[in-house]
Computed example of a mutant assay.
Amino acid sequence: MTVNPTEEAASAPGAQPGALPDAPPGARPAALEARDLSVVYPGSRGRAPARAVDGVNLRIGQGEIVALIGESGCGKSTLARALVGLVKPTSGQVLYQDTPLGYSAKALKQYRRHTQLVLQDPGGALNPKQNVYDAVALGPRLHGLRDGLPERVHGALARAGLRPPEEFAGRYPHELSGGQQQRVVIAGVLALDPRVIVADEPVASLDASVRGEILKLILHLRDELGLSALVVSHDLGLAWNIADRVAVMYLGRIVEQGTVEEVLLRPQHPYTKALLSVIPTGAEDWRPTLLTGEPPDPTAIPAGCRFHPRCGRWAAASEPERAEAACDRRELPVLAADGYRAACHLLHTDALTESV
């Protein structure tokens, strides 16, 4: 995979017109999928309900890494937690290998053998009173996998890059670096032999010097074990270095998705372009695009295109263009789960009656 030089050294939900309802020919079989998924948190003290996830279709193929990108508050973490069964959707479905997720205690326990969440803060995820061995063994013990437990734990530590595992097994979190703590968290996931991992900002709390090591580890696990992964991040450089496909999220919706090259080299949606514009290009005329208006508020979703109040393209549009596009009053359809799509009325004169 090509490395970006800026990285760490650098109105009703429905299928988009013209979009395929399922994966296009040649796509990998689905490992994990969200279909028309919504998560609404009830309001309190007179506040409106918060539509944190609002009609999302997202597909992670077998052996594929998908990066979910967006600002803080756009619903990425809520979607991640819904995909691993920690949050029950208000509507829609989560499917594992085309089978809808059940929400009984037994069904969720069985599901979590196969789909695991990697948290952002490894220090907070680890019990300071528990040594590395017990931290990694916790999951297998909860699932009754006690036969051959030492071999399972040591094997997971080795796959996570903590070698020799015997040297780390007796240590406690405070005796480890941030990168080593994250590897322990990943080892705890690997000890259950999952098929899918959902990593929520897996390197956000780490120093730049170790971020690349963790990203390289995730790629290695994909190649060695055939793992599928959804990596949640606000870092477009991370997406470039690790992902096969990218989904861009804004205010509870996927607004653009496609391969890394399609989305990051030829972005179509104004929001994606604004996110990419902050990466220095080295050109003399380089200027970042500053988003105006208020950050996303899931309790006050605007009419029409939910990005239009902050959209520079809409602000610069002529009156005839505004009349035709009607970004401030006409709802955009929900994007289909796969293929290259961007949800923007201003992309086409036919107002999005064909795919991008």
Results as ranks from 00 to 15, higher is better:
residue 1 M to V: 15
residue 2 T to K: 13
residue 9 A to M: 12
residue 9 A to E: 14
residue 21 P to D: 05
residue 25 P to C: 04
residue 26 G to Y: 01
residue 28 R to N: 03
residue 28 R to C: 01
residue 38 S to M: 03
residue 43 G to P: 02
residue 43 G to F: 08
residue 43 G to L: 07
residue 48 A to I: 06
residue 52 A to N: 09
residue 56 V to P: 06
residue 57 N to G: 11
residue 75 G to H: 10
residue 82 A to G: 07
residue 84 V to C: 02
residue 84 V to N: 01
residue 84 V to A: 04
residue 86 L to S: 04
residue 92 G to L: 00
residue 98 D to F: 00
residue 102 G to W: 04
residue 107 A to I: 08
residue 108 L to F: 07
residue 117 L to A: 06
residue 139 G to S: 12
residue 140 P to A: 08
residue 140 P to Q: 06
residue 145 L to P: 02
residue 149 L to V: 10
residue 162 L to C: 02
residue 164 P to L: 05
residue 164 P to K: 00
residue 167 E to D: 11
residue 169 A to R: 02
residue 170 G to E: 00
residue 180 Q to W: 01
residue 188 G to F: 01
residue 200 D to Y: 10
residue 202 P to C: 09
residue 208 A to I: 15
residue 208 A to G: 11
residue 211 R to P: 02
residue 212 G to V: 12
residue 216 K to V: 11
residue 217 L to C: 02
residue 219 L to V: 08
residue 219 L to K: 15
residue 221 L to S: 05
residue 232 V to D: 06
residue 233 S to C: 12
residue 237 G to M: 09
residue 237 G to S: 08
residue 240 W to E: 13
residue 249 M to F: 09
residue 252 G to I: 14
residue 258 G to V: 09
residue 267 P to T: 15
residue 269 H to E: 10
residue 276 L to K: 04
residue 278 V to I: 15
residue 280 P to H: 11
residue 280 P to W: 03
residue 286 W to N: 09
residue 292 T to W: 07
residue 294 E to G: 10
residue 296 P to A: 14
residue 296 P to H: 05
residue 298 P to Y: 05
residue 299 T to A: 12
residue 303 A to T: 13
residue 306 R to G: 10
residue 309 P to M: 14
residue 315 A to W: 10
residue 315 A to I: 11
residue 317 A to K: 09
residue 318 S to G: 14
residue 320 P to R: 05
residue 321 E to D: 14
residue 322 R to D: 05
residue 327 C to M: 13
residue 333 P to D: 08
residue 333 P to C: 08
residue 335 L to I: 13
residue 349 T to P: 11
residue 355 S to P: 06
